[in-house]
Design a protein around this nucleic acid. Structure first.
Ligand SMILES: [Mn+2]
Ligand SMILES: [Mn+2]
Ligand SMILES: [Zn+2]
Ligand SMILES: [Zn+2]
Lengths: 173, 173
DNA sequence: TGCGTTATTGCAACTCATTGCAGATAGGCG
DNA sequence: CGCCTATCTGCAATGAGTTGCAATAACGCA
C-alpha cells in the first residue's frame, strides 16, 4: 500500500513470516542493535540513514506491545521538539515494508502499531471496556484456512480487527 | 459508541437481528415510507424530525450497497449546498442507533455505510484490486461461533473487515 | 576530502472526522 | 395559535493522516 521506494522488493512480503533478522538484532542488545540492523538494510537498498529515522527507531525499541501513531509522534517530539509528523508517518510506512512494525486498526479505524511482533496475529477489541487481545493461533488459523480454501483469499492476518463485547462485559452489563 | 441520545434505548442492539421495521417501510414505497418510519420512531423517543435529517434519508434511500461517508456528504450537498458535514455525521450516528444503516471500515480505516442491510454481514477487501465482497453466511457463522464458544466474545459482525488478496489477484501476479 | 546524485525532509495545503458551544427551531402543551 | 424548552444545527477549533513540491542532506564515488 505504501508508495515508499521498497529497498528489497521482496522484503515487504517476505519479512512477515520469514525468520526475522530484526527480531534477533533487537532481542538482547535492544535499540543500538536494531538501529544497526535497520541502517544496514536501508543502505543495501540505496536508502538513507537519517537522524529522524534513528530517533523513531529508538522510540520504537523502548515500546512494548501496541502504540498509536499519535503516541509515537508525541514520544519523538519529546526527544526532539522539531519532529515533523509527516516524517514519522512516512518512516513508519517504510519500517512496515521492512517488517519492523505492523499496524492494525482500532475499532474507530485509527491506526495502532505493534513493534516486532513475534508472530503475525489479529486482534479482538471490546467496545465496552476498551480491552484488546491477540487472536489465538488456532483461532486465526481457522479463519485464514477457511477463507483460503473457500474463496482463494489470502488474509492479511495482522490487519484483522474483530470488534465486539468481551465475556466480562457481557456478564456484568 | 455514539453519545447520541438514544430514542428507545433497546433499539440500538435490538434492531440488528430483530425483524426490521424500516426494512418493510422502505421495501416498496421507498423514500417517503422510510422517512415516515424514521420520523415516527424519532418522535416516539422525543427526538426531532428536521429538514437536514429528511435530506439525508432521501439520499440514503437512493443508495444501493456501500457508500463512503464523504460521498453521502457530497450527495446531500448536491441537494442543498448549505449542508454541514458535522450534521451529516451526527445524523448517521443516530440512524445507526436506529438500525437504518451499518458502518464498516475499509482497509484504510475510513468508514463506509451500508443502507438497510438485509442481514448483518462482514466484509472481505482485496488490497490489490480494491474489490469488496460480503462474507458468506456460513463463513461468518463459523467465525462468530468460534469466538463465542472459545472466548465468550460477542462479535459485531457488521464491523468485521478482513483484508488481503483475492484469488484473481493472487493468480495474476 | 569534496562533489553530485537522488532520497528524504520540512512545510503547507488538504481531506476526513470529532467535539463544544451558542443560537435556532421542532413540536408538546396550554 | 403561540410559548417554552430541550433537541438540533451551524460554526469554528482541533486532531489524525496524506500528498506534492522545493530545499536539504546522505553517502557513493572520484
Ligand atoms: Mn467503526
Ligand atoms: Mn491499514
Ligand atoms: Zn470488555
Ligand atoms: Zn483483488
Amino acid at each position: 500500500m505504501s508508495s515508499y521506494p521498497d529497498p528489497t522488493s521482496s522484503a515487504a512480503a517476505g519479512s512477515v513470516l520469514a525468520p526475522d533478522p530484526f527480531q534477533q538484532a533487537a532481542g538482547e542488545a535492544g535499540s543500538p542493535a536494531l538501529c544497526a540492523a535497520v541502517r544496514d538494510r536501508l543502505r543495501e537498498g540505496g536508502l538513507r540513514w537519517t537522524p529522524q529515522r534513528r530517533a523513531l527507531i529508538e522510540v520504537l525499541a523502548e515500546t512494548d506491545g501496541h502504540v498509536t501513531t499519535a503516541e509515537l509522534v508525541e514520544r519523538c517530539r519529546e526527544r526532539d521538539p522539531a519532529t515533523i509528523p509527516s516524517t514519522v508517518y512516512r518512516t513508519l510506512d517504510m519500517l512496515e515494508d521492512l517488517g519492523v512494525v505492523r499496524h492494525c486498526h482500532r475499532p474507530d479505524g485509527r491506526e495502532e502499531y505493534h513493534v516486532l511482533p513475534e508472530h503475525e496475529h489479529g486482534h479482538l477489541y471490546c467496545r465496552a471496556c476498551g480491552g484488546c487481545w491477540e487472536l489465538e493461533r488456532d483461532e486465526s488459523d481457522r479463519i485464514v484456512g477457511m477463507l483460503e480454501r473457500g474463496q482463494g483469499f489470502a488474509v492479511d492476518l495482522s490487519h484483522v480487527t474483530i470488534v465486539g463485547r468481551c465475556r466480562a462485559c457481557r456478564e456484568t452489563g
